[in-house]
């Protein structure tokens, strides 16, 4: 399977990328590692007229730093860099761990955090992780920079508040302590989660993978834990506001069941009794 033809712009700077996006509007697609975009283009499910390649913008856009209680991750930081970062293991171990669960090693070498978030796939691991971690996403557009709370970022299936002429540049996360856990249930190790559950900061943040059209917070679970509920009782609420998809791996009802089972496991592993 071969992508349909497109024109190619290799951006030498964020400004160049933004200019190209501004010029081509919704006919353009931004590409970082390409690991979400290229498979869709091969199936011709996506046929952009122009691909704007930002994969080589390293510098500030790639790397991890920790200061003043905040972890800053450049949007082009690759999954394998998250996975192996000693700083991240210290300051936000869940993100490093979740990154190690994405796809397979070859995918992790090329895929980027910003690319994964911008793709906004509810079945992906990292969007749910940043949601649970209470991240702030930094986007640049023609009007300059804006900060978007992860909770406000995802708006629909493969859709986010990111405008056609914006790009993600940085992901900011609070240095996170406390119990955390990530449960991913799939049939093959390389596959997307049938359901996943991320528990961050002693369950201050709990989020679900593949339980709706967007990655989503399990707010009922968070509230129950905050109110002192047991892991078992809190987990029973995991699927309450979800409208999970039905596909070959599981129907909506089974996904709801999995969400409850996995949430209980994640809460317990995170130290919630």
């Amino acid at each position: 399977m071969i992508p349909a033809a497109f024109d190619y712009v290799r951006a030498g700077s964020v400004e160049e990328a933004l200019a190209a996006l501004a010029e081509h509007g919704d006919d353009a697609k931004l590409m970082a590692g390409g690991h979400s975009l290229i498979p869709l283009m091969r199936y011709r499910l996506v046929t952009p007229g122009v691909v704007v390649d930002v994969g080589n913008l390293n510098g500030d856009l790639r790397g991890i730093s920790v200061a003043d209680g905040t972890v800053r991750v450049g949007a082009l930081t690759r999954h394998s860099e998250l996975e192996h970062s000693a700083e991240l293991a210290d300051a936000c171990p869940m993100l490093a761990h979740v990154a190690s669960m994405v796809g397979d090693p070859a995918v992790r070498h090329r895929g980027t955090l910003g690319g994964s978030l911008a793709h906004a796939d509810p079945a992906s691991d990292l969007p749910a992780a940043v949601l649970a971690l209470g991240a702030t996403l930094v986007a640049r557009g023609p009007g300059g920079e804006r900060e978007i709370a992860a909770a406000d970022f995802f708006t629909g299936f493969l859709e986010s508040v990111l405008a056609d002429d914006e790009m993600l540049t940085e992901i900011r996360l609070p240095v996170s302590g406390g119990g955390w856990n990530y449960q991913k249930f799939n049939r093959r190790a390389q596959d997307w989660a049938i359901v996943g559950v991320a528990v961050a900061e002693n369950a201050k943040g709990v989020s679900l993978v593949n339980m709706g059209s967007t990655p989503m917070r399990a707010t009922a679970v968070e509230q129950a834990v905050a109110a002192g509920a047991s892991a078992v009782d809190a987990a029973a609420l995991a699927a309450d506001n979800a409208s999970p998809p039905s596909d070959l791996n599981g129907d909506a009802e089974y996904r709801g069941h999995l969400a409850r089972v996995l949430t209980e496991r994640a809460l317990k592993a995170a130290g919630i009794a």
Partner: peptide
């Protein structure tokens, strides 16, 4: 690619 495994069906030559 630079010593790390990559799936060459999921990269464009230009990349």
């Amino acid at each position: 690619v630079d010593g790390q495994s990559a799936k060459s069906c999921t990269m464009l030559a230009v990349q």
